[in-house]
Design a protein around this nucleic acid. Structure first.
Lengths: 235, 235
DNA sequence: CGAATAGTGTCTATAAGACAATATGCC
DNA sequence: GGCATATTGTCTTATAGACACTATTCG
């Protein structure tokens, strides 16, 4: 990439833009972030968040840029995608003013859909972050996306987007455990998720060396829902 | 401004960037948005949100761009400033891909600090939006910023940022009334705001034709605080 | 049967909401 | 005193949390 793009434009109007994605999944109870090889040869670390540029021939909306980048690393569709923040400053990139729109994605654990460049790295839990070294300022972006997840998981149905199609109510507890490092009591999880119109009993069971657990799936037409209390045992 | 900036750059890296600000205040119980004259001659409407471009000689951070734009219209410092979203697409601007970072500001009512270009327009309440016509897609941006306010007002200390230095607890109710069109009962407002470590009794009173009300101010070192329940009477 | 996990019953704690009762200024 | 609004008291409701108890499978 040319190192002097900025010189060719009015400094008041344009800047280098990239879209970075913090894609998280839960794998065997561990929260993980999707990374790709850092492309910049001078990067301090060799893994980075998936990132890319707007392609005006392909992208009509910013979100499409994010989805396209994600698709390079995994065929899986994100079960959740939202913007986190936009960071712009003159320090981030040596070429001058640059601007990064950060997206936050949740994926179900489907490793068979990943391309070879994809690597998932453990990030620890909210209580005990153990962030991998990432190129550029990506560790910081990762941190704020995880913070967003840790907040929203407590008053929305987001935990369900980290689970496979069919799941048990105890699986929801494990999402909390994996993300936050602690979980509300099963009683509270049942009260919140087990009733009402969020999930539906499939009638099937998951069998183990114990009493089998009912399998649920999201009710159709399910939207992300807000609850009006936080779990306090997880604060 | 040149109409063909984009032709001079790699289409993959750069886009037109602007920073738009939705600045809200409460004036005599009415929620109002700050507007300036729309600069583009072909704009359909003649008022627009305060907006501008990054100035690399003045702005190190994106937020500074927002603060600088705001200062053009009012000398008042925003009591609250946060990013709402970044909108990017190829349709918004006829010149091609453009990107807008939208900020959301709260100001105390201090009309004497405004410059002549500043005009505050009523926006109605959350229950009953009556948005003014604004140039470009600014009405849509206004709408999502107001939505953000309507949500956050219910579980944070944001209502306090729309009030003057000294205020009564009934003033907080009036903030809810002005923003949402309805308010939680005074009992609940007192429980939430009157106790604890959020506000402090100044010892002074506001006198009227009735029992005087205690005046409070924010406790020093006050941070925006989250509560762990929403008001339900305002849903 | 015992181990293990699923699921229920029930009591407590917290904060919102309803609403009555009281307080304190001005006229 | 009478009006108006501030402030307090108290009861109800909703949901989280603690924790004991019951249920159901496997081995």
């Amino acid at each position: 990439m040319s190192e002097n793009l900025l010189e060719t434009t009015s400094p008041l109007s344009m800047a280098l833009i990239s879209v970075d994605i913090v894609a998280l999944r839960l794998n065997s109870g561990r929260l993980q972030v999707l990374t790709s090889a850092a492309r910049h040869p001078r990067a301090k670390h060799d893994r980075a968040l998936p990132a890319g540029r707007i392609d005006p021939t392909l992208d009509e909306q910013l979100e499409q840029t994010a989805r396209r980048q994600l698709k390079i690393l995994t065929q899986a569709e994100p079960s959740w995608l939202e913007q986190v923040e936009t960071i712009g400053n003159s320090l981030r990139d040596s070429r001058g003013w640059s601007l990064t729109v950060v997206y936050f994605a949740l994926l179900r654990n489907e490793p068979e859909l990943d391309t070879p460049d994809a690597q998932w790295l453990d990030v620890g839990t909210c209580c005990n972050l153990q962030l991998p070294d990432l190129a550029y300022d990506h560790q910081r972006l990762l941190k704020s996306a995880i913070e967003r997840l840790c907040n929203k998981i407590q008053y929305t149905t987001l935990p369900l987007y980290l689970l496979p199609e069919a799941f048990t109510l105890a699986d929801i507890r494990d999402v909390f455990q994996g993300v936050l490092g602690k979980s509300p009591p099963m009683r509270s999880i049942r009260n919140r998720f087990g009733n009402g119109d969020i999930v539906e009993d499939t009638g099937k069971k998951r069998y183990g060396s114990n009493r089998p657990a009912s399998l649920y799936h999201l009710k159709k037409g399910n939207q992300n829902r807000l609850f009006n209390r936080l779990y306090e045992s997880t604060q």
